[in-house]
Amino acid sequence: MSADLFEYYGVDGVEDTRLRRSPHGRLEFLRTQELLRRHLGAGHTRERGAEPGPRRILDVGGATGIHAAWLAADGHRVHVVDLVPAHVAAAARLPGVTASVGDAVALAAPDASADVVLLFGPLYHLGAATDRARALAEAVRVLRPGGLLAAAGISRYLSLLENGTNGGLTETAEPPIRQVIETGDYDGQAGFVDAHFHTAGELRAEVEAAGLRDVTVYGVEGPAWPALDVAGLDAFDALSGGALRCARLAERDPLLINASAHFLAVAHVGR
């Protein structure tokens, strides 16, 4: 783990509030719940073939357990793996959640021991394609036959849309934003750590290359998220219903999917 990554997550604790403190973070949280529950067989919008019932979920890079908490409340058995000891300690205090320190590229879990593996952070924190491939291979190894992978990516267009909407797209900001659009290499210029940002097609290709089947990539927030941020938290309740509908309508649209701030790739291990 790089010193920068530990400083960002392990010292100032921003991950604990990332999905609560901004309108687009709240939208991301709601949509991630919606999409994952759809594939876990919960609710009237479940995907065809989704299996209802409790699952053994390995939440890799699960941080303080913001997703583990609601998954455990839904009845699933959730184990969080994270590089940051403070995150692991916080997650382990959650009802129905266990946690341990670990690395996405070398998981301690046995082969075929999980029904579901979540990679909601590792694929953008692993800058090298070979390391992302290792993390995906580890996820495949620990999943049972027919098991479900859900992997998140950050859109290459996040910085463009965010800064183009909030007034931050200055002459100075333009070159690094152009770089991340063209290459996916994000240099931390807006306060985040160095990372890899995906296109929807690139994320799909990486998941398919790991040998997974039935790969579907969703745009999580849809194209309305920058407007929510400009409107502010006080307007979230009034505007979020329309933004959620917008996200659903555009979630697989090839012309709009990259306007989401994040992607969620969902796939299965062959039986």
Rank of each mutant, 00 (worst) to 15 (best):
A106E: 12
A209W: 05
R77F: 06
A261R: 14
G121K: 06
G53T: 04
L19H: 12
H268L: 03
L94F: 04
S100N: 10
W70K: 10
D237M: 03
T17D: 10
G61P: 01
Y8C: 06
A3S: 11
R93K: 12
A231C: 02
P54G: 13
T45Y: 11
F263N: 01
A91Y: 02
A108M: 03
E208R: 00
G65I: 02
P95G: 15
A92S: 14
T165H: 11
R271L: 03
A72H: 12
L212H: 04
A250P: 00
V215D: 12
C246P: 04
T98F: 00
A259P: 00
A243L: 06
H76P: 07
R48F: 12
G241T: 02
A243D: 00
G127D: 13
I154K: 00
L94D: 07
A200R: 10
T17Y: 06
S155T: 07
D187C: 02
D185S: 13
A259L: 14
N163D: 09
G121V: 13
L136S: 08
R31Y: 09
E51N: 04
A267N: 09
R48Y: 08
G121E: 15
G102R: 05
E34T: 00
V78M: 03
A224E: 13
P254L: 02
H262P: 03
A42D: 15
A72G: 09
Y186G: 12
E34K: 06
D12A: 12
G270Y: 05
G191P: 04
G184T: 14
R26G: 13
G188T: 07
R37C: 11
V78T: 06
